Simulated scan of single mutants.
Amino acid sequence: MTDGDPRTAVAQKPSRTDTYGPGSWTDVRVKGWGANGSWQLGDSSSTANRTTPAMMPGLTGAYITSLSTGALGTGAGFGLALLSDGTVDAWGYNGYGQLGDGSTVQRAMPGKVHGLDNVVGVAAGGYHCLALLSDGTVRAWGNNGNGQLGDGTTTYRPTPVPVRNLDGVAAIAAGSYHSLALRSDGTVWAWGKNSLGQLGDGTTAYRPTPVPVRGLTGVQRIAAGTDHSLAVVSDQRVRAWGYNVYGQLGDGTTSPPTGYSTVPVTTVNLDGVVEIIAGANHSVALTSNATLRTWGWNNVGQLGDGTTIDQLRPVRVSGTSAVDITAMAAGYGHSLALRRDGTVLGWGSNAYGQVGDGSIDPNPRTTPVMVFKENGYPRKMIAAAAGGYHNYAI
């Protein structure tokens, strides 16, 4: 992930002498797969689900620095692309103005978010979006029923507005109805829905403007799931807060009697964490020795440990080498891992083809499988992002 967003993957631009397919750097493309009911795969010719990566017209990977995906349903997915010129493109479902074009009309092809430039990071939530600007301020647009845009209101915004009382931001993350910002001083600020403690301020009161997460300093990474939040702190351990009925906080409990924690707790049996992401109700960590650990909800195998049993503490993803993984992404019920050789592994729910192995199957993939190789040739993927039921790759 990243700019802090679990669904965002940052592409590091290789030299132009690198080859990523039959051509050169100019051959770098963006592809998508999985659910496509609202044109979230960016192809106006069809809303058919895709079981393998397919070209997304209008997007050229050579000009994209990061991707982010949002969705709360198979027919409500959308995507964001941060371009190298500091502007943002958006496409797909737009019922709450989350495409930022001033309308609520779906887009089958990428179009510009209005009034944004000098953007250095993007994050897509359930139906809202965040953009981090080069001056350390944040803009937000889309659904705002829980104050997740941070402008002091609950009015939806079809074009970007400033998040109030927030500067010096280094990273952003968006949950379904809440938002997070990591400031350069190592503190985390949160706003939006808080009925399950996902803002970490010790209360369950919604916040239409940012408030500090209680007791967090030295934070290096952040991530947001549907209703839980994660942070990696300076000791390379994970702090987590919010909804915990499935064990997604990883502290070995389900936070009785409420099922949530309004303040950060420590994820157990986990250290050396260099990156963190959150799916809907599961969490994924990459450690310094390149192992993947997962915990939380596992009803469709999204933890990749060979079972469908929820895990209250981190477990190792089956079949992943200790030196093989460089990045990961997580959707509603599936997960992805980018390998050092540029291939991608997928596991979990595959009901919409989101695992990308060429099939649609009601039976989950409880251990990683290879995302389909085009004509037997493993095009090298340099970034991948997972939405609710769909994915993108550069």
Rank of each mutant, 00 (worst) to 15 (best):
residue 1 M to E: 06
residue 4 G to A: 01
residue 7 R to W: 01
residue 12 Q to Y: 08
residue 13 K to M: 02
residue 13 K to H: 02
residue 16 R to Q: 04
residue 25 W to M: 05
residue 31 K to H: 00
residue 34 G to A: 05
residue 49 N to D: 15
residue 52 T to I: 15
residue 53 P to N: 09
residue 58 G to R: 10
residue 59 L to S: 00
residue 64 I to N: 03
residue 65 T to R: 15
residue 71 A to K: 04
residue 74 T to F: 10
residue 75 G to Y: 14
residue 87 T to R: 14
residue 92 G to P: 03
residue 94 N to K: 08
residue 97 G to E: 10
residue 97 G to F: 13
residue 100 G to R: 13
residue 101 D to F: 04
residue 108 A to H: 11
residue 117 D to R: 15
residue 119 V to S: 03
residue 121 G to R: 09
residue 130 L to M: 09
residue 132 L to V: 09
residue 132 L to R: 14
residue 139 R to V: 05
residue 143 N to Q: 13
residue 147 G to R: 03
residue 149 L to W: 11
residue 151 D to I: 08
residue 151 D to T: 10
residue 151 D to M: 10
residue 154 T to C: 05
residue 160 P to F: 12
residue 161 V to Y: 05
residue 162 P to A: 06
residue 162 P to C: 00
residue 165 N to M: 03
residue 165 N to V: 06
residue 169 V to L: 06
residue 174 A to S: 08
residue 179 S to Y: 13
residue 181 A to L: 09
residue 189 W to M: 11
residue 191 W to V: 02
residue 192 G to Y: 07
residue 205 A to M: 13
residue 206 Y to H: 04
residue 207 R to H: 14
residue 212 P to A: 10
residue 215 G to R: 15
residue 218 G to S: 10
residue 220 Q to M: 12
residue 227 D to V: 10
residue 234 S to V: 05
residue 234 S to Y: 08
residue 235 D to Q: 04
residue 236 Q to R: 15
residue 240 A to S: 15
residue 245 V to Q: 01
residue 245 V to A: 01
residue 248 Q to P: 06
residue 254 T to F: 01
residue 257 P to M: 05
residue 259 G to N: 06
residue 264 P to E: 03
residue 268 V to T: 14
residue 278 A to V: 15
residue 278 A to C: 11
residue 281 N to H: 13
residue 288 S to F: 07
residue 294 T to L: 02
residue 299 N to E: 09
residue 300 V to G: 00
residue 301 G to H: 08
residue 301 G to Q: 07
residue 302 Q to A: 12
residue 307 T to K: 01
residue 307 T to I: 02
residue 308 T to S: 09
residue 309 I to E: 01
residue 312 L to T: 11
residue 319 G to L: 09
residue 322 A to H: 06
residue 324 D to Y: 14
residue 325 I to C: 07
residue 335 S to A: 14
residue 336 L to R: 11
residue 337 A to E: 04
residue 337 A to P: 06
residue 337 A to I: 08
residue 339 R to M: 14
residue 339 R to N: 06
residue 341 D to L: 08
residue 346 G to F: 11
residue 349 S to N: 10
residue 351 A to Y: 09
residue 351 A to D: 13
residue 358 G to P: 04
residue 358 G to Q: 05
residue 369 V to H: 06
residue 371 V to M: 09
residue 371 V to H: 03
residue 372 F to A: 12
residue 373 K to F: 06
residue 374 E to F: 10
residue 385 A to L: 00
residue 385 A to I: 00
residue 386 A to R: 06
residue 389 Y to G: 01
residue 390 H to E: 01
residue 390 H to G: 02
residue 391 N to T: 11
